[in-house]
Design a protein around this nucleic acid. Structure first.
Length: 245
DNA sequence: TGGAATGTTGGAAC
DNA sequence: CGTTCCAACATTCC
């Protein structure tokens, strides 16, 4: 369930729990004493990229779904929950196969939401500045850098590069200014398209590049390779996506 | 059915 | 001591 827009949906779906008291907590998490959560109200829910932050009066929980994590609201899977919270209205937030940690208050306060592509505080100017400061960075690695594009994952990476017609092995520093701007703007734009499509359960059918075999623009086969420092799957068209170095 | 995948981390290695 | 690399982990789908 990873990329940022999916967390955004989770936050929306769980919004009614804000202000409610946790009446029961359990789960196979080793990092949290679940008994400590009982009796605390949820002060707020936040997302920062792929992090879900549950703010309680006494502590902040950070949930990361990694590659395989899932969640259910008001229902349960036939699997042990990593953490299960029952709320005052009888509702439940259940999370599975994810990382659950308590974070320091100072760490919570240090979250920079201007780096989150889904946030109202998203700051494209800052993102461009971070990119200009690292000219050697490859475009495919840049998009996956959570300090620059918090919430962007491998699907969004592939779709953004295809949309702006930039080769994944391009150096960020070699991109003409309008391309750099397009990279930043499309990271956010595609994330919101992703959000809308995901809500309609039609995300996959809108993929133009990710996991695709053929370029829909020029009809030649896509190349598929694990590129960059991150070595993640890239799907790209050598004809349509220009390489800048 | 084995392998790969929407991701990160901790520690080894240099 | 800083940087880089990769194994490990967790689960589902084809």
């Amino acid at each position: 369930m990873p990329e940022g827009p999916s967390l955004y949906i989770l936050k929306e779906q769980a919004a009614r729990f804000v202000g409610q008291e946790i009446v029961h907590a359990e789960g196979n998490t080793w990092a949290i004493d679940t008994a400590r959560l009982v009796g605390q109200p949820i002060v707020a829910l936040h997302t920062w990229g792929k992090h879900l932050l549950i703010e309680l009066p006494g502590l902040v929980l950070r949930i990361h779904f990694l590659l395989f994590g899932t969640y259910r609201i008001d229902e349960r899977r036939d699997k042990p929950a990593r953490l299960s919270l029952r709320m005052a209205d009888g509702g439940e937030l259940n999370v599975y196969a994810c990382s659950v940690r308590e974070i320091e208050r100072t760490a919570f306060e240090a979250y920079d939401f201007s780096a989150d592509v889904m946030s109202d505080q998203w700051d494209p100017k800052k993102a461009r500045k971070k990119l200009r400061a690292r000219p050697e960075l490859l475009a495919c690695d840049a998009l996956l850098d959570q300090d620059i594009f918090s919430g962007v994952g491998n699907i969004i990476k592939n779709e953004v590069l295809f949309r702006i017609r930039v080769h994944p092995l391009s150096n960020v520093g070699a991109l003409p200014a309008p391309k750099l701007r397009a990279l930043v703007d499309e990271a956010r734009q595609y994330s919101f398209d992703f959000l809308a499509w995901k809500k309609q359960f039609v995300l996959k059918q809108h993929w133009l590049a990710h996991a695709q075999k053929t370029c829909p623009r020029c009809d030649i086969p896509f190349l598929k390779a694990n590129l960059g420092r991150t070595k993640r799957r890239s799907f790209y068209c050598e004809r349509c996506q220009k390489r800048y170095n």
